[in-house]
Write a protein that binds this DNA or RNA. Sequence first.
DNA 1: TGAGCAGCCTAACTTAGGTTATGAATTATG
DNA 2: CATAATTCATAACCTAAGTTAGGCTGCTCA
Lengths: 250, 250
Amino acid sequence: MSLIDTIVMQGLSTQGVLSPEDKALLLGLELSPRYISANEILWDEGAEADLFCVAKEGWAYSYRNLKNGSKQILKFYLPGDIIGIRDFGFTRRLASAAMINKGVICPFSYQQLFKLFGRSSLAAGIVATATRQQAQLSERLIYLGKYSAHEQLAHFLYEIYLRLKRINAVKDNSFLMPLTQELISDALGMSPVHVSRTFSMLREEGLVIRDRQHVKLPDPEALARLVEFNDSYIDEYLPPSFSELLKAKP
Amino acid sequence: MSLIDTIVMQGLSTQGVLSPEDKALLLGLELSPRYISANEILWDEGAEADLFCVAKEGWAYSYRNLKNGSKQILKFYLPGDIIGIRDFGFTRRLASAAMINKGVICPFSYQQLFKLFGRSSLAAGIVATATRQQAQLSERLIYLGKYSAHEQLAHFLYEIYLRLKRINAVKDNSFLMPLTQELISDALGMSPVHVSRTFSMLREEGLVIRDRQHVKLPDPEALARLVEFNDSYIDEYLPPSFSELLKAKP
DNA sequence: TGAGCAGCCTAACTTAGGTTATGAATTATG
DNA sequence: CATAATTCATAACCTAAGTTAGGCTGCTCA
């Protein structure tokens, strides 16, 4: 899993927009992998925002600690995702980030990112990556605002399923999800008890089979229909016009 | 109100990072103002994503229509904000956008944006603008997930207050907010009735005085304490390191 | 190998906020 | 100027989800 495997970069790459030098620059970002243990905190809210990471192995999440002692999770990061882009352009972290299970991340600095920005095609790719993350956040906002716990959890599981499928981590409609129900409750803004209740409902409906970290969606399409899933924000490549515009540049 | 007045661009500009040519490019975006009437739809979800707008006058919002007939508002845009950056890198709109009151917007195309991207300092500014919007969304997510209606509405009003103050639209702790309670309810994911109830509570506590569109916060600091407002995501300039990095570039 | 603990389930009870309804005040329209 | 349509306030009632609690299972590590 390299940065190039980010879906947007893939799009740029397969359309021949990235030059060999661009690719060399991208690959240069992953020269210093760091091995991280489970539950290790990558950074705390308010810390200096001086680097980003590509998650190579393991899951991570960003979150905010709330005054009442609980926390709200903003996003789960799967292998291949860029962690910390959220803080680009801020001096301090707006949210904490932590590893869920043990894994490998590749940190890179502002300096390295700016080097990429010199090449407008890479700037476009980075921005597109950031807006994709924002799009995922928007979807979550929509479900938090107006849908029931039942629909929320279904949506959440289907999103994870799609993101894992993209990186070939789904086999026979099953995947590994290293999340406790407490983490899920922090992400969906509901109580852990209600997450359990809702899982039970989905099980009884035959939509989700789960044994600890092993999750199986016997009929993913049924789940998708239930939540009217809008998958354009996950799967889409860059618009065709992009490659034209980028090639035309001097 | 010009694009330069966007907080990030202001930061770049006052630190002398923007060259005269950069500024000319930016101002070029504002050459074709369009006059928009109240409630006019700028674009629908699923439409081709081919342009962005700078809001010059009037308020706008982006939203998603939900299957049950209601809608979820993702963001309100005040004068000076860039509308549509959310869809950068997608071929189709992920959300609809509409004007609230009548106003003026300045559309610009992907081509124009890419021209800006040729200059890495501007690319950085645009990305930072996009991430700032994402940060505002994250804050809303946090409040949707874990706080009561009372705290949510207080937070919402205080955010509007800060954003308006930045563009000098607050006088004597009062400002004009052209939102119906129904729009607010669509943004905060609660029922219109409960918005009204909650406004009544805030009024009784002496925190918010409101007569139709005229809103006064007699003691903004008290409101801020109530919600423990984290204003770093609104006010902060670009990190000092940015200007160093950008100047160092060839 | 067994004590301790994290994770999960289910039940009983409570509550914040949704829903429906009615009326008053404002604003738009013919 | 009169009528219709918004917008808002408040009340009465209801439900989805929170809270507290108790018990089960399967790790971990002493």
